[in-house]
Design a protein around this nucleic acid. Structure first.
Lengths: 226, 226
DNA sequence: ACCATTCATTACCAAATTGTTAACTCACCC
DNA sequence: GGGTGAGTTAACAATTTGGTAATGAATGGT
């Protein structure tokens, strides 16, 4: 369930709240990390780089708003989603939270259902498809919106990774992409895959397209070329 | 950004809330009208015919639910989108709101981000429906006014969700819709449904239509294709 | 010509993703 | 109440995919 492996960090000093939230989020397939005070929250955020952070306003060491303020000050956390846990009718926290870019609020006492649905809808929103433009070179047409490639008008079904790889290489025809660039872009920096993986995917693309539009540059990488 | 010139009416007795919401919506290109009680909301709604109305439940003169009830009683407001502002966990208001056809709820304290995104997604949704006045592709005819699909002239009865899903996918044939896009559009952001739900509905559509006009794009989503 | 690298190719396996069926819940209607 | 159908969920089957290992071919330097 849910876009697999999304990490959620929860910071609260009350153990039972931590447990309730963890349990419910894990039930829905999220990767949950917990912290019991502000300092720990900051450390774990740095370590794990969660996609979403739930911060209790009232915490020892550093309160939720301070944590949020510190995180938002760093560029890598600009896009991280942050939800505050507030006491009911705590207008002041509400206002301060907004200043530092909270994405949502949840009031205690917590309804697990509401909680999960807020987490889900926030994480889902980031997934809206960017309007990417289609590429057309020679007989080849790459349409990201359709996840489809046409060669001489005929559709050629490619698998997800194959399509992403071709689309990436074709985004700058003629330019050589290093193997490391390809790995970082298509596979992401966290995933570790063997060296032959790119080769195999390149081969599959060549095979399915029937033409050799991907040129090997030995010792360097690959480039797209008609 | 937003579909130009969409009018939003906001009714709330708290001046600062009115201001926060107005400001954020105007920032996103919406035309904002405000009202500070129920009676004023009704008057301004009649004058300006907004596309979307945000109603606080607790207001002087007439409360949000009464306003909604009156509006929904008049044919010209059947399609107007209505969002309620509720106190958190106010289940009763939720239930009553639903009875009178609320399109969404927002709990106080308000997160401007969430607010804007809900307004956007609601207005976007109707935009899709408006533009899809009867789609005709190959042997297939999709008529939203009748909630009915015809295959080779023969009517094929689809359930509500099935129809909405098919209509949504067919609104842009060939384009792949992410599972998250589908969930946001057909199910809305507040609902929690499992991962297999979309699949099952797709299956039912395929089964009832007898043709495979919905193509699976593994790891991405679904697309409509003859 | 020989060797060391690097890449191509193939076949295969494990994991991820989706298809399918049946059962369950919840309104609604008679 | 009992029956019906829509919507959802759960469990399992089927399929696709991504990744790897093994082997062979090409390349480039000496």
């Amino acid at each position: 369930m849910a876009p697999a492996g999304k990490k959620v960090l929860i910071a609260d000093d009350e153990a039972d709240i931590l447990e309730i939230i963890s349990y419910n989020l894990q039930l829905h397939g999220y990767d949950v990390i917990t912290a019991k005070d502000g300092d720990q929250a900051l450390i774990k955020a740095k370590e794990q780089k969660p996609d979403l952070i739930i911060l209790d306003i009232m915490m020892p060491k550093k309160n939720g708003i301070e944590v949020c303020k510190i995180l938002r000050g760093q560029p890598e956390y600009q896009k991280t989603l942050i939800i505050f846990l507030t006491a009911l009718n705590d207008e002041l926290s509400h206002v301060k939270g907004l200043e530092y870019g909270a994405d949502d609020f949840i009031s205690k006492p917590i309804s697990p259902k509401l909680m999960v649905s807020k987490v889900q809808s926030l994480l889902r929103r980031t997934h809206v498809q960017e309007s990417s433009t289609s590429i057309e070179i020679g007989d080849l047409r790459i349409v990201p919106e359709e996840y489809m490639v046409y060669f001489q008008g005929q559709p050629v079904p490619l698998a997800k990774k194959e399509f992403e790889l071709l689309n990436f290489l074709a985004s700058k025809p003629g330019r050589v992409f290093l193997r490391s660039e390809i790995l970082n872009t298509i596979w992401g920096s966290e995933v570790i895959v063997g060296d032959r993986t790119i080769d195999v995917h390149v081969r599959k693309i060549r095979q399915k397209l029937g033409i050799d539009c991907i040129t090997t540059v030995k010792g360097v990488g690959y480039k797209f070329e008609i």
